[in-house]
Simulated scan of single mutants.
Amino acid sequence: MAETGEVNPLRRAARVVLLDDRDRVLLLHGYEPDDPSYTWWFTPGGGLEGDEDWEEAARRELAEETGITQIELGPLLWRRTCSFPFDGRQWDQEEYYFLARTRQTGVWTGGETELERRSVTGLRWWSCGELLATHETVYPTRLAELLRTLLDEGPPPVPVRLETERA
């Protein structure tokens, strides 16, 4: 809720499930700016800007956050709504997750925004097995099993609506 008692507007965010030629997924390592001990891993992506569409936002965010521009953007895999506290405010988002493939490796670019520079430490390629075995927090929380299904069965014929996540 906003301070006025009104509901926060739903932010639209495009996210990318980026796979390399070994079927590893690229995740960013983030943390709460006011408490660096609270960390998690998440897919590249972010809010739509201006009149860009979901796919344009996915490509732009991936390039800004990882430096990776050589991708084959695939279908929309999943959609979810989430709500979470971060950097002193409540974020309410509708997220679209796109599949993408690349042979290009990424490097943490330091972020385009001041908030990214204060809340992301780097990136890492994860195998499905590593994701299934980790005890670290990963968003979306079911990413390991979703990735396993994606690798075993291919993209879903229509985007899957994931359960709402609230923190």
Rank of each mutant, 00 (worst) to 15 (best):
T134R: 10
E32L: 07
T4W: 03
V138Y: 05
F42I: 11
E165L: 12
P75Y: 06
G74E: 10
G45V: 03
D23F: 01
Y96C: 14
E95I: 05
D35I: 00
G88Y: 07
G110E: 06
T4L: 11
G106H: 06
G88D: 13
R142Y: 01
S83F: 01
V158T: 15
A14I: 01
E52W: 03
P156C: 07
T43D: 02
A167E: 13
D35H: 02
G45C: 07
R124Q: 12
P155T: 10
E72M: 06
E136I: 02
D51K: 12
R161K: 07
E72Y: 01
D51R: 12
V107R: 12
V138H: 08
E114H: 04
P157L: 15
G74C: 14
H135D: 14
A58N: 01
V17W: 08
E153M: 07
E32A: 09
A14C: 07
P75W: 08
A58L: 05
W54M: 14
D92P: 00
W91H: 11
D152Q: 14
Q70S: 15
W126E: 11
P155K: 10
C82G: 11
G45E: 04
E55L: 01
D152K: 10
T149H: 13
L115S: 09
L146Y: 01
A14Y: 00
D23W: 00
W108M: 11
P156Q: 08
R60T: 08
T109D: 04
V25C: 11
G47N: 10
G45W: 01
L151N: 05
T43Q: 10
E49V: 14
R80I: 00
G50A: 13
C128S: 06
D53K: 06
F42E: 12
T69G: 12
E153F: 03
T134S: 15
L99P: 09
R142N: 07
G122L: 06
V120S: 08
V16S: 04
W78F: 13
R24M: 14
T109Y: 02
L99H: 15
P33V: 08
E165I: 04
L27G: 02
F42N: 07
D35C: 05
T105E: 11
